[in-house]
Write a protein that binds this DNA or RNA. Structure first.
Length: 308
DNA sequence: AAGATGGACAACCGCCGAGGT
DNA sequence: CACCTCGGCGGTTGTCCATCT
């Protein structure tokens, strides 16, 4: 018997949020800043539980959230951070400050995982080098001998390293939207030749139209918030609270602007990271190292040998 | 044209850890 | 030290919408 869910109380509304509810929540946060979620329903009159309010804010209303198509670079990072960190979406999201963990998780579960599985399936049929791999990247619970496990681990590290190099290369920033399939190829066996999958292009178009209608709604909230962000830019206590690893960047005008321009997400995450790093290194701990360290570690050949 | 199917995504649920009492 | 509350996280579900048959 666990603790009863906080949303079991009577009179608590569930389901999609209405614009009116959004405005109530945003107005309150405009005035008081995020946090103290427990108090929000009673203070605002919202018939929602505190968790629902927090989730709505962090995944949807929070300024600086980038919606819509994932760039090639973002895809690269997600694929390889997932390979490194597993399904730790909050950790992965901390390297993509404009994306929410929920967004990344959804993108992985509904799109990337299937693409990867499909790709590997094709290669398996061709009798290529990944014949021994488990197709499901997120549930690799196959028992294997230690030597094999080590080789697999090394392969994963090498793949991650290779892809990160690719993702970090400046020229890659210019090719964001025309070679999405390459991500998969970089992950899968390099000897594979049947890489003419075009399934993703239709999906991306689909996504684009969907996100348009969705964004128009979110943009209204974003515009509402924009004035507030300007107002609060100088004494932004919330940003120091939220802009840490494991949570997301908040209270940064740059976030709002960057969702509409072509600034690379990596560049952005780097800048955010450098701001956060000095004050938050102790919070990063053993699981999440600063981006530059991760990058360095991944790119450093000698670490691989040491590790193995 | 209508029903079936599948993809995308917002939201919920339950567990866990941190911090306060 | 035990208990409680709160916030965060990952897994899962529900719903909407587009496409297919």
């Amino acid at each position: 018997m666990g603790r009863p869910p906080c949303c079991d109380k009577e009179g608590i509304k569930k389901g999609p949020w209405t614009p009116e509810e959004d405005i109530l929540l945003v107005s309150y946060i405009q005035e008081h800043g995020p946090g103290n979620w427990k108090a929000i329903p009673s203070k605002t009159g919202l018939l929602r539980c505190s968790k629902s309010c927090r989730l709505r804010w962090t995944n949807y209303l929070r300024p600086g959230i980038k919606r819509g198509n994932f760039t090639n670079q973002e895809e690269n990072m997600i694929i390889h951070l997932q390979a490194l960190l597993g399904n730790r979406w909050a950790a992965i999201a901390s390297y993509l400050p404009q994306r929410t963990d929920n967004d990344i998780k959804n993108y992985w579960n509904t799109y990337l995982k299937k693409r990867l599985s499909k790709k590997l399936e094709e290669e398996k049929k061709d009798g290529s080098c990944l014949a021994n791999n488990n197709n499901d990247f997120s549930s690799q619970k196959v028992v294997m001998p230690r030597g094999q496990w080590e080789r697999r681990l090394q392969t994963d590290i090498n793949m991650a390293k290779k892809a990160l190099t690719h993702a970090l290369s400046p020229q890659n920033n210019n090719n964001n939207n025309n070679n999405n399939n390459n991500n998969i190829e970089s992950l899968s066996c390099s000897s594979s030749s049947n890489s003419n999958s075009n399934s993703c292009s239709s999906n991306n178009n689909n996504k684009a139209t969907q996100s348009l209608s969705y964004a128009s709604n979110a943009d209204n909230i974003a515009r509402l918030l924009k004035g507030w962000m300007k107002k609060n830019n100088n004494n932004d206590t919330a940003s120091s609270k939220e802009g840490i690893l494991g949570t997301k960047v908040f209270g940064n005008e740059e976030c709002l602007e960057s969702s509409n321009n072509t600034t690379s997400s990596l560049e952005f995450s780097h800048s955010i990271y450098s701001q956060q790093e000095e004050s938050k290194t102790e919070e990063i701990g053993q699981v999440l190292m600063p981006f530059h360290l991760l990058e360095k570690w991944l790119l450093d050949e000698t670490n691989i040998e040491k590790f193995i």
